[in-house]
Design a protein around this nucleic acid. Sequence first.
DNA 1: TTGAAAGCGCTACCAG
DNA 2: CTGGTAGCGCTTTCAA
Lengths: 329, 329
Amino acid sequence: MMTIYDIAAKAQVSISTVSRVLNNPDKVNENTRKRVLAVLEMNNYTPNALARGLVRNSMRTVGVIMADIRNIHFAQTAYTIENHFFNWGFSVLLCNTSKLEKKRDYLRILAEKKVDGVIFVGSVFSDINIERDIKRYLHSTPVVTTNSVINLPQAHSVLMDHNYGMELAVGHLKERGHRNIILVRNSRSYNSANKVKCFHRAMKLFKLPMDDDHVIESSSGYQGGIEAVDMMIESGRKPSALIFCDDASALAGMLRLQDDGYVIPRDMAIIGYDQSDYSLLARPQLTSIDIKIPIFSSIVANTLHDILLGKEVGTAINLSPELVIRHST
Amino acid sequence: MMTIYDIAAKAQVSISTVSRVLNNPDKVNENTRKRVLAVLEMNNYTPNALARGLVRNSMRTVGVIMADIRNIHFAQTAYTIENHFFNWGFSVLLCNTSKLEKKRDYLRILAEKKVDGVIFVGSVFSDINIERDIKRYLHSTPVVTTNSVINLPQAHSVLMDHNYGMELAVGHLKERGHRNIILVRNSRSYNSANKVKCFHRAMKLFKLPMDDDHVIESSSGYQGGIEAVDMMIESGRKPSALIFCDDASALAGMLRLQDDGYVIPRDMAIIGYDQSDYSLLARPQLTSIDIKIPIFSSIVANTLHDILLGKEVGTAINLSPELVIRHST
DNA sequence: TTGAAAGCGCTACCAG
DNA sequence: CTGGTAGCGCTTTCAA
């Protein structure tokens, strides 16, 4: 491997000059520059980012921590973030973890690797102590969280207004004459608990009956949708509308109902969440709460980038969802 | 930020000793070790991976280059790879790119960042010159490719036997009495071209009619499935069975046909590819070629890890798919 | 068992 | 415009 020493020797200049043509080309004489450039080119020189990083104390890398990239919602977010940061000259370290233990390990690893910033996709709180771990390992490294607020000076957050989303959903259902509505939560995360709270608030707002029977706890995706409907049927509850917390489980739940002879939306109205491809793959196509993932994740990326650039950014940024009405309601 | 110098000073030892308790604890006197450990703990010391990396010439990081993480197939692969490497003490840099230009940039970046290895998920060849770029930037860094073979000493590959997969699919359809079968390819990638070739071979093998009319070129996912069926109908071709190259487009294509009054599988048999959740979300559920993504990606990860460990591994490893028969055929 | 010192490859400051 | 040099924080001989 070529180092700037080798290049300097071959080009008959000092390493300072080589470094300069690499970083401040305009501060070196044209002829010298050309000569060095030629040697650089000839030898296929590649700078060592570790050495540079050690001096500059930055590897131009950010860490993205998320529960599970297999979730299409997170995958899209990761995609958008990677894309933006690539254009800004940063790489992204992918950290998949739902377990607190692994999350903490990653925090330490990211700290050791001196990442320039960290993004938490999906709510952070699998444990309230995560705040302490962030402070401990990340010191003052900028952190951007989504769907949860962390009380640390270097932390900023981008939030989706689920209160408004639930208002939209419940309001729409009430308008269609529904009164007995059940929410299917799809995980035990903080974010999921928050949606329940928002649902609660929306039901109260529209003066609709609301108690624990109006919430079913299941998991996300195909299995979650099937199980939720099974639980509903077994428990003997007879709602006229179901709100799911992700489109995949909404679609699965709908299929499960249809297999049982239900006609959607006549016998049951269904609303999904996320506005993903799944909502189009349903028959009837799903009414879904659009949480605008591309825009949302662009904002997340830009927020961290602005911080890295030293710009002042607000502590919390809010984005409102939209209701996309199709034929399942 | 604490460095080993600070720790050494506080513990009244030399930095060598601190370094030793960090890396070879058994080579230092128990009392000294305890003292240093205490100081380490007290001050929340975090080693600087850049400095260490510069000396050891490794950051314990691997790069994963894939076309598009939003594709569930790739997301699952990334998930599995990340998981394995995390357990082995490595981080993964996520590189999303279908464009050759960006692929080359990433090759350079990964080289600069001194990654220990690179994995290409999905066929590499958007341009045949990629081989030259790999040689140029990666020198002798180990590379593992999937679904494509690169002719370089440091390159190894893990392959899915699509020949066998197509044999399974076509054989199954022939058994069900189908003769006029169309393959819907879902991209222009090398991998997709390969599937066409395998389909061709399988059709010949079973002595079924085969010419260019038996292949439709579309894109992947929801849109691709819709478009493919539109193209089929417009062209007036009347196959009795369709093989798609991914489940999402198979499902979309099926829905498009059903919207048109087709009854599946009576009027048209459909086979998907990948055996993902999408195949379960279809009604009837999709017969699909299972390419065993979890096993496949585990093998990929293990192959690279073995290479990093200096073990001898074969140049190419083959894995056979399976046909999961459901109700769309 | 411990410490001194020589790098790893690069940047950035200071002289000239 | 150019070169010398002092680090960046750590690992790793080599002596003691």
